[in-house]
Design a protein around this nucleic acid. Structure first.
Lengths: 193, 193
DNA sequence: TGTACATCAGTGAACGCGCGTTCACTGATGTAC
DNA sequence: TGTACATCAGTGAACGCGCGTTCACTGATGTAC
């Protein structure tokens, strides 16, 4: 081999990592293949040795980024804080200000909707896994209610983070984050009317 | 005048209306000036007689679309259903399936974040008005708690609609909408721990 | 051990295309005389 | 009333640019003999 064993895999991983940050920061549409590859230290033509199309990369990035978010939140919960630690870690100024390393669902949700079904399916599957993680940390017996509550908590976290990012005023933004924390914890406490 | 009085205003309004539908359906970035103007029955060059830039149009569209959403939801609440009617009208399959005439916040939130401060400010201001509308229909005495609860309810509604749109499976999508309704009503009922 | 060849990750020119924006122009109508 | 001119919403060619994708190629290294 002209390159050491594992070289191509490492390059592929590097492209995904660069794309993952850039997609979350600027949106998928705003990121071009040429700039992406330059960031990864390569030229644009080589892209197609790794991915069949930009859309295929999008799918891989979404799956990878959401897997990592899930793992990170699972670790945070496991360290003893449970659901409250998840919620507080998610609705925090650093997460609001660092979308490039944050939750891909919050960063890309409204544009993923317009992608092909295959991409949406990848997104939907990983979001379900995130919801499942939240459900595991709810003290609700009925599995249907637990699942519904977990879904609403995640939707609220995502919507809250997006609103906090849209605010121009720092104080207003932090009040929104706080509202989101309170609401998530209230839902975890009062799953039924 | 070569055109009857009010002609230019009517054209401007038509451009905004066409842009409003197309932005919400495809995202701001995916909509070009030429296609937009063709849809409005004009050629692209005329665009700059009405708007200084595409970004200026984006700002006008956001303000207009969110004003209309607010007015629509206010009417629905006033017809007797109150907050529950707002929530149920928002988290409904037709709204999920018709983003082009639906809430601009849910359709565009994650991309507005990346626009210039002036655009974000226009968005933020109108979202505050929507939250205020929700707050008006909450039976909570403490204005801070009322406001916080309204914020969380709106964030949850927005996040829920986005998740429902991202699902490929129809049944899963409808369960998400239902979770959102339940959660919003639960928050309205239990504002404090 | 030395030479010929195969491999293939990565290169970079080229493809057609649409983008946002500018600008000299058109032509229907209103106003001035 | 008839003619000359001013107005200005809208036209369409042109600008430089970046997009996603294709493809003939390079050149470093491994394998075969």
């Amino acid at each position: 081999m002209r390159y050491e064993k594992g070289h191509k895999d490492a390059t592929r991983k590097r492209i995904i990592d660069v794309a993952s940050r850039r997609f979350r920061k600027a949106g998928v549409e705003a990121v071009g293949i040429a700039g992406l590859m330059a960031d990864a230290g390569l030229t644009h033509g080589g892209f197609y040795a790794h991915f069949g199309s930009k859309e295929e990369l999008v799918r891989e990035v979404i799956a990878d980024a959401l897997d990592r978010s899930r793992a990170r939140l699972a670790r945070i919960a496991a360290e003893g804080g449970g659901l409250e630690a998840i919620v507080r870690a998610y609705l925090t100024p650093p997460h609001r200000d660092g979308p490039e390393v944050g939750c891909a669902a919050a960063a890309l949700a409204s544009e993923i909707v317009r992608h092909p079904a295959e991409t949406k399916a990848a997104f939907a599957g990983k979001v379900e896994a995130l919801i499942e993680l939240i459900a595991e940390h709810l003290e609700i017996d009925d599995p249907t209610v637990r699942r519904q509550t977990a879904t609403a908590i995640f939707a609220g976290m995502m919507g809250t983070l997006q609103l906090a990012r849209a605010m121009v005023d720092e104080g207003a933004s932090e009040q929104i984050l706080e509202s989101g924390v309170e609401a998530a914890l209230a839902l975890a406490r009062h799953p039924r009317r």
